[in-house]
Design a binder for these strands. Structure first.
Lengths: 234, 234
DNA sequence: CCAAAAGTGTTATCGCTACACCCATGA
DNA sequence: TCATGGGTGTAGCGATAACACTTTTGG
């Protein structure tokens, strides 16, 4: 049954259940959102929960995380990073399970209709989160904390916006992440001075009569600068 | 044999071996050091390795880390933090083992004589590391990276110095962490302006005729400021 | 022609950097 | 008395924060 060769040397050691859980974050309508699911298995069946899975013997831990992310959102190649290990022996009354929490940032959270039906999923505002099972609330809090910290030095916000976005949109996102209103003009100057945005000819007119120019994140330029130890503090 | 109740709900799931490994960092004589051990078990018996252990079914993951840290260094209550999960299925030819790496910062690395004999342990300079087993080298690199990043915003350096230390000593430590020489005077100003050091009446005369005043880290004051969202950038 | 959002420029201030200088002491 | 490391002060510069003003366009 096991794909490994543990019996060779470590057979006397105890084995534990290992799972991954995903804090899936999105952004819409000026606020950060969290994707939650109704749990399908006992214990706590039907309660709100992060999406998770046990790690299979023949897959890496990171692989397990991206596997379930794709399975439940249909998305590949999204930003996905390890959050940490939640390993208290009593954390799950259903058994001794160690969970490696991850967090993901995804764009375009419109087409949730399918998800909602298929998996009983729902996007929640952060100020209206329901009670979560186990230590999932802690994972969520830690994910937000990590996002805030990371966003200060890495241009990570782009992961939450569509490919083309306007500067005002980007600013609103950062307002939401930092929980405070940045100065419009200073924000624009700073982000443009980094030279990681490509200005397009199109305008987005959905939020003003004048219309705001669309930009695209220039990943190549970013990685070039990043490699040189450049700072992207915001 | 197992202390948990996994059989209740999750009995069909595969179980994995879960270990912790500790990157133990110290500071002496102006350079950062790493504590390594000769591995006692197969495979790779006798090669240089981080110290590690399997996680027991009835203990938390963090607990396992501090348990082995105390077992091999005799030290309790040291700085110990999770580094991350190393979970590639092929990382250990001895079996499918997931390792939760940790890193520890310890003071006073003089009395290693006992350790050296008892466990075949040795403190290495970072520019003279031997080959390490498995992915331990990666863990070490990640630990250094994390130390550097963390030291910028948290007064973490104190964990590596004795309780009483001088400002020049502290500066030398930060030189070593950041791998570049900071300015003596600016460093002093900045660190003193944070108000987290308590000046003592004693002087340390080991490194100059004039002698340098000893200081102590004022943890209470630090936590007070830290709670108020204070920044400790260095 | 007006409301509302987009976009640009200017100034004052704060913090950091890069220095030069004085102090205390053992040999 | 002098070499050595410890300790203090300051001037210039660059980045940031706090602002006011102009532009565009649908209704």
């Amino acid at each position: 049954m096991y794909a490994d060769h543990s019996h060779r040397y470590y057979e006397n050691q105890a084995r534990l259940l290992v799972a991954v859980d995903c804090v899936i974050l999105g952004f819409n309508n000026g606020t950060l959102k969290l994707l939650l699911f109704r749990r399908k298995v006992e214990p706590f069946r039907n309660e709100w929960s992060l999406i998770g899975s046990f790690v299979r013997p023949d897959e890496g831990v990171g692989h397990a995380a991206s596997r379930i992310l794709e399975e439940y959102t249909g998305l590949k190649n999204v930003f996905l990073e390890e959050l940490g290990c939640y390993g208290h022996p009593e954390r799950d009354p259903g058994g001794r399970v160690i969970s490696i929490a991850h967090y993901a940032l995804i764009r375009a959270i419109e087409q949730d209709k399918d998800l909602a039906e298929k998996y009983q999923a729902h996007w929640f505002d952060f100020d209206q989160l329901p009670a979560l099972i186990l230590d999932h609330r802690k994972m969520v809090d830690n994910a937000l904390e990590k996002l805030r910290r990371k966003a200060r030095y890495h241009p990570i916000g782009f992961e939450l916006l569509p490919e083309k976005f306007t500067i005002p949109q980007l600013k609103i996102l950062y307002d939401a992440i930092y929980q405070k209103e940045l100065d419009r003009r200073n924000f624009r100057k700073k982000i443009l001075s980094m030279n990681i945005l490509e200005k397009l000819d199109e305008k987005d007119k959905t939020s003003s009569r004048k219309g705001a120019f669309l930009y695209r994140f220039d990943k190549a330029k970013y990685e070039e600068l990043s490699g040189k130890g450049f700072d992207f503090e915001l």
